[in-house]
Design a protein around this nucleic acid. Structure first.
Lengths: 204, 204
DNA sequence: TGTACATCAGTGAACGCGCGTTCACTGATGTAC
DNA sequence: TGTACATCAGTGAACGCGCGTTCACTGATGTAC
């Protein structure tokens, strides 16, 4: 049991968790402060003891999302073990696993439309997460044929874009029914891409 | 001049165009029927002469988007001329050009969260657009080394996912500042991917 | 241990607002004779 | 050409609703003596 505060006990975190469920169900724009309060068994006014308002609550949800995201990526990457390539592929799989397991966080992070600049803590968490991805990309790029090695930030962006696109188009109802499981689709896509970079033998 | 009807003249289309501007500015979920009516210089109630309600109006915006999208893709693909590969690359560029030039349509199509099943016209337009992409992919896949040729629907999904991801992450403010222009980023990404499929020589 | 007081998390009522939607209506446009 | 009538696109008022936010308050918890 977590320690209980005055009345509710950890209301701040309870609100975050109520919001997560609502965001996953109705999208970040569909979620309302009042509903989150109700889900936490509390008056809407109580929310203002812990957050400056609706957007501030949403920002905190996104911030926690980036923290989890960064930790998962870090863990999956595992300092490039057993090999830069294998670690990189594990990171890609972890990306999709995160989107599937933490849909509320994912949507708050990437589909909420709130600007991170307005929330310093959010901007910092987001930068931290991104740095994990870029480190993995930079490490892997050392193993590329140097003549046509693209900037690490570019090929990290490619992988991120494809991963995000698979999540948005084929994991949610949006756009299209997936003809394949999203995981297989992304793994195959990344494989082809890495072969194009000379990181995989043509017959791998 | 377009022909004018009873009072306003083509109010139906005026509402669609007002909605486009609002959607591009505030996202599909931020757009409201009342604002669209006001932008078209008309009472909210007038909207109900032409649409069943807010969602119906949004669906019509998306439908028109798919029509334009399909036409642009068709034009860019140009029946696979001058070569299947060149035509395919032109189609990729056209995708991004569409997203940039018709942000309201793009957002209504891919970020609105409305289910196409509920709107038969929308579902049909969406299927038509998708078929153009799949035809291009199928045609190109005939030129692949047949031993490891992936299903056309899969590699079409890869390209689409990367394109969509680039739009969402690097063309909008969402997620990240682009280190490169979105067009260059996507073109390079598709190039690497196609090389991975054996469609481009390693030194191309 | 017991009492008096300070703190402050959450309450409940209230606010102004804009939303989507309905309804009886009006008056400009089109049509029949 | 002129008149009487039918049509129907758009009006304006009204509705109930849930939103975000504010405010003075209350009462459970923690603390000092």
């Amino acid at each position: 049991m977590t320690k209980r505060g005055y009345h509710h006990g950890n209301l701040r975190q309870a609100l975050v968790e109520a919001s997560l469920a609502l965001i996953a169900e109705k999208s970040p724009q569909g979620f309302t402060l009042s509903e989150a309060a109700k889900a936490a068994d509390v008056t809407p006014a109580a929310v203002y003891r812990h957050f400056a308002g609706r957007d501030d609550l949403l920002a905190e949800v996104a911030r926690q999302g980036y923290e989890i995201f960064a930790a998962l990526m870090e863990y999956a990457y595992d300092d490039g073990k057993p090999s830069a390539l294998a670690a990189f592929e594990a990171t890609g799989r972890a990306y999709l696993a995160f989107a599937r397991k933490y849909p509320g966080h994912y949507m708050a992070m990437f589909e909420s439309g709130l600007s991170p600049q307005a929330y310093p803590d959010l901007a910092q968490a987001s930068a931290k997460a991104r740095s994990v991805l870029e480190r993995a990309a930079a490490h892997l790029s050392e193993h590329m044929p140097p003549d046509r090695r693209p900037p690490a930030s570019m090929f990290s962006a490619h992988i991120w874009a494809m991963s995000h696109g698979v999540v948005e188009l084929f994991m949610r109802g949006n756009g299209a029914k997936s003809p394949f499981p999203a995981e297989d689709l992304l793994e195959a896509g990344i494989g082809i891409y890495l072969r194009g970079l000379g990181l995989l033998r043509p017959d791998q």
